[in-house]
Design a protein around this nucleic acid. Sequence first.
RNA 1: GGGCGGAUAGCUCAGUUGGCAGAGCGCCACCUUUACACGGUGGAUGUCGCAGGUUCGAUCCCUGUUCCGCCUACCA
Length: 922
Amino acid sequence: MTTPQLDKTYDPKTVEARWYEVWSQKGYFHASPTHPGQPYSIVIPPPNVTGSLHVGHALNHSIQDILIRWRRMQGRNVLWLPGTDHAGIATQNVVEKQLMAEGASRESLGRERFIERVWQWKATSGNTIISQQKQLGESCDWDRLRFTMDEGLSKAVLEVFVRLYEDGLIYRGERLINWCPRCLTALSDIEVEHEDVKGKLYHIRYPLADDPDTALVVATTRPETMLGDTAVAVHPDDPRYRHLIGKKVRLPLTSREIPIVGDSILVDLEFGTGAVKITPAHDFNDFEAGERHKLPRLPILDHQALLDRAGLQAAGVEPAIIDAVATLPVMKSRPKIEQVLKDRGWLTKVDDHKMAIGKCYRCKTVVEPYLSPQWFVKIKPLAEPAIQAVEDGRIRIIPEGWTNNYLGWMRDIKDWCISRQIWWGHQIPAWYCRHCNKGLIVEETTRTAAATQSLRLTILQGATPIVGKSAPSTCPGCGGQEFIQEPDVLDTWFSSALWPFSTLGWPEQTPELKTYYPTSTLVTGLDILFFWVARMIMMGLKFMGDVPFRDVYIHALVRDAEGQKMSKSKGNVIDPLHVMEQFGTDALRFTLASMASPGRDIKLAEERIEGYRNFANKIWNAARFTHMHLAVVQESQPMDDRSFPGLWIRSRLNGTIRTVTMELEAYRFDRATNALYQFFWHEYCDWYLELIKPVLQDSLHPEGSATRQTLQDTLEVFLRLLHPFMPFISEEIWQTLPHEGETIVTQSYPVPQTHWHEPSTEETFRLFEQSIGLIRAARVLLNYPPGQEVRVFVTHEEPAASATLVLLEQHLAHLGRGQVSPIPLSQWPTWNILRLVTGGITVGVSVEGDVDLKKALDRLVKQIAETDKESQRLVGKLNNTDFVSKAPPEVITDHQDRLRALSRDRAMLTSSEQQLRTMLGA
RNA sequence: GGGCGGAUAGCUCAGUUGGCAGAGCGCCACCUUUACACGGUGGAUGUCGCAGGUUCGAUCCCUGUUCCGCCUACCA
């Protein structure tokens, strides 16, 4: 083989593109059920098709790729299945924005053409994130790329919907749901984000019907919904009001009289005025209170969140008041109502009040509780087995701490609203007979007040759906043949919930499904534990009869260096693509893995990535060094390297293999990367390469070829150990070393070798390392210039030290020029020598030449004083005097004995008393 | 309101079945030594959030407390 020309610094750019191309072309990432090995599979959390790779993806995907590459090298039958999510609302928003720019709208296009348009958009722009994932080096099986609206996946959605419906687990009903007035659709509970805001608490007089001069004062944060009040509640034990229960009040601004009811659940005696208005159609609590007291629900807002004239008129509201508020969006109608109430003397008081409001997680618009017919999944029967699966350990959540979070949520789970009033998504497979449901199907053409002309279809409550995988041919009720399909589509998360099996071909019983389900590990952020993970578990258990995955690894959120959530508006986004460009993909991956400690958010700073870029460069240069020395001769027979450095580095390598493997199994990517870094930089480079330089430079050295062999082998094994973390540089270097096989991707992952394990060698090395450290420290202390020869005295009386002594002699070059004089301690010179003690060995460095004794002594004194600080702590506050900071020289002598006793194997600097006195006198 | 997590060097974070407190980055000094200045050698820096308790010994275990973050929730 020829020595490759390697540049002085590693240039990731060309390397990365080149190798990814090779890997994909050769099909190394392709999975097949017929491959040998125990299956290991991961389905990727499908990113939104509208997305581009942000640093959160980068973390999530890096971790998965590390697991996948590691298991692949271990010989498992690996599948990493990629894909994207159709992301209903998000995608629809993107395309609508485009249309708006063209002066068109969703409505002007009509449903069919709009959906075509979205598909078009997907064809041209939907692959952005895929190519970025490839840039990150992800070893997915791209031949199996899936999309949640694929034909196959849509088939699975239909199948699941129909089966759940037939099992009575899907129902249509009129419930209060969260309505986003901007997206004009229902949202599920968890799609609402809560935020604390400063609001106001309005006190409003509600006069008694039979005694208009007396009034009940209610407190509310939402006066604009009062027109929909159907009762007022007081606490049944409240002495102020309990005699009023059963009487009526007249609702201000209307002609209606509403009852006063007693309700101990809704009313808190301490809060507000103790009287609460009940608006069942516009508040979740009031809805429930309404159920309890059989109150009518009076919706006064329509589904576009405009005040509904007709509704209000029916409620007896004066036309003048409707004029005041009727054309305003609900959030703006509040001050109008406030003004009217004030003008007419109904408003008695307005207090500041802290409250939580819900916002749409997509567009941050304040959501409105809104009464409308929607589709729901009856969730309790599905949640039960999903709770059990985690309780009995069939699914393991890592870190464990999130388990309770999961269980708590599941036990208190509410029915899942799955219908969305948008167009992009899986249209609900329910049809209505036009004849039977006459009057309940409302096709609205124009809405005068709406910003856009809208053509909408509303199926009112009471309509009878016919659910099936395809449109019915005749109506079982009337034999009619005209049908209209439910206009709503399913929540995006409905199809994502099927992801682990729908992507493998379900409902067909494919070989893929048999081989790779249940998947092995799910890697995800905490933010979608409920949105996605919980629902996958429920659906997997229901339709596959088994859990969808064994382990759920939950990683932290990535924040910026200040701990702020990264967002475009704050301008604190770290763009992974930019980082890859600047520092290399391997550096980014390694950084993210190193910061993936459990239970802590990741604050990412660029300096950190730069540090690991340097690590990549260090590896690169160590490889260059290795190449320089491999150029000599290649042995045909591998030599058994019994040299001390060889035994030592192999033992350390062995320990590193053990640690990395163990940490990977425990999902401790931070500790795994740390072990790799520590070994390579501080053991292989700092010590091993330096120690063997004299051997390598001596072409006649008897250990030369064995040493070269170890040098190369260690690097080769390390590269394989590193590959899952830094796939590109490891492949690039590995290819330049002598090797069998065509790629590192499919090489075996290193396993610990018991015969490499050398605990006594490592122990001796530790002493050696310490001795060298002391001698180096002495050099600096004595201000010896680099070329200055140093005489080192070493005791050879203590048996533990003998091996170290030999090493010191052998590797003196490592200390700079000089000589070692192994003589018995008793024969050491007592003059002009710095004595250093460590573990089982004592070394001395002679003081000679032109040394700045004053400076050396200052440092000496300081160091001893430091040591004494330790002693204070150890001995346990012998006295409280603060002599540490002053540390007069005479104290030193007094404490010397104690110091000696206390500093066991910690490096300690002493000197003979005579020398000390001389120096002090000087 | 409830739950969870965090608080350790200037910064970002590890760590300890309880036994002399660690890394990376940054900082200081010296070094352009033939793999690497994206480098080498040496060095400085900590009331381990605060207060009690258990213990021979607590950064670690217990109790209380403060600050920060997250999740969750119907105080109108």
